[in-house]
Design a protein around this nucleic acid. Structure first.
Ligand SMILES: [Zn+2]
Ligand SMILES: [Zn+2]
Ligand SMILES: [Zn+2]
Ligand SMILES: [Zn+2]
Lengths: 155, 155
DNA sequence: GCCGGAAATGATATACCATATCATTATCGG
DNA sequence: CCGATAATGATATGGTATATCATTTCCGGC
């Protein structure tokens, strides 16, 4: 079961991060990991009820998500109003500026670090325009190869 | 009055674009231009009532915004759930992939074209990850120089 | 000018996302 | 055990977005 392996991964992450990952936070993280796609806070509340047979109010989910995102165990996709587990939640990989490739068709998301050279060029361009980059997170609307392929056939 | 000059600019834009820019759409565009910052559809409904002494339901505002964004006269900032007039609404400048620098402090926004070399590198990186860039629009959380300066003093 | 279809707008309902606030419970060192 | 702090629950409310059907406006053909 996906949830099972996600749980053990969340366990590992919890041990690595020296932070108070309570059982509910861990469960929310596990649900995010099992989802493998962005989910909303309200969806998580539903998933929690179904997966753990306990009702958790959305308000609490939001707070747990705050915690998880502050600790880079999860991310918020601002352009989607959804959340996703960090691709590096289970490795010690230090967390740089993330970049999300979002398939507009199947909503699969791939997280990667922003390419170093791109990052530097971006910073330069921003500075030139009279701004300072503070919280770089790129969310790029794409098609995954599968969906791009499928699209071509029906064109 | 800002609205007045925005109206004439909207007029120009309307003439340039060979599209059916109705008077209400033009008014919404004028309001966006006068705002000079991102505004929500519901804010626009309020502004419309105040500015033109006529009540327009949010639903209609959304539709007019759809039209304006489809024709690159306005843009939606997906990460803010707000709308902004296109910086090139009044020039014949063909519209490439836009990039928005958003001041997290004062919410000023600057629109610029994505730097060509950055765009190419982005496309390469995306392709390498098994995706195809479809609708490139960068929304970068920044501080404008004024706010960055102000921030330093109070640190 | 009248007519009929298409486009635009209005009206209403509803779903979904997010936060504010106060109450309650869990946790932990002393 | 106590008191402080952190975490969670409960409730209310606000903000954003869409679905659907009704009405009006616009425009070309007659
Ligand atoms: Zn991450
Ligand atoms: Zn896909
Ligand atoms: Zn533009
Ligand atoms: Zn600023």
């Amino acid at each position: 079961m996906l949830l099972q392996s996600a749980l053990s991964r969340a366990e590992q992450a919890s041990e690595r991060a020296e932070i108070s990952l309570t059982s509910k936070r861990k469960n929310v993280l596990a649900l995010l990991m099992a989802a493998e796609r962005p989910v909303s806070a309200y969806e998580l509340a539903d998933l929690y009820r179904e997966g753990f047979e306990q009702s958790v109010p959305p308000m609490s989910i939001y707070r747990m998500l705050d915690f998880l995102t502050e600790n880079n165990l999860a991310h918020k996709l601002n352009s989607e109003n959804k959340f996703i587990s960090c691709a590096h939640a289970t490795c010690e990989h230090s967390h740089g500026a993330p970049q999300f490739l979002i398939c507009e068709q199947c909503h699969k998301v791939k997280e990667a670090a922003i390419d170093k050279s791109i990052f530097i060029e971006l910073e330069k361009a921003v500075e030139k325009a009279g701004f300072v980059l503070t919280n770089p997170q790129l969310e790029l609307k794409c098609l995954c190869n599968e969906c791009a392929q499928a699209g071509k056939q029906t064109d």
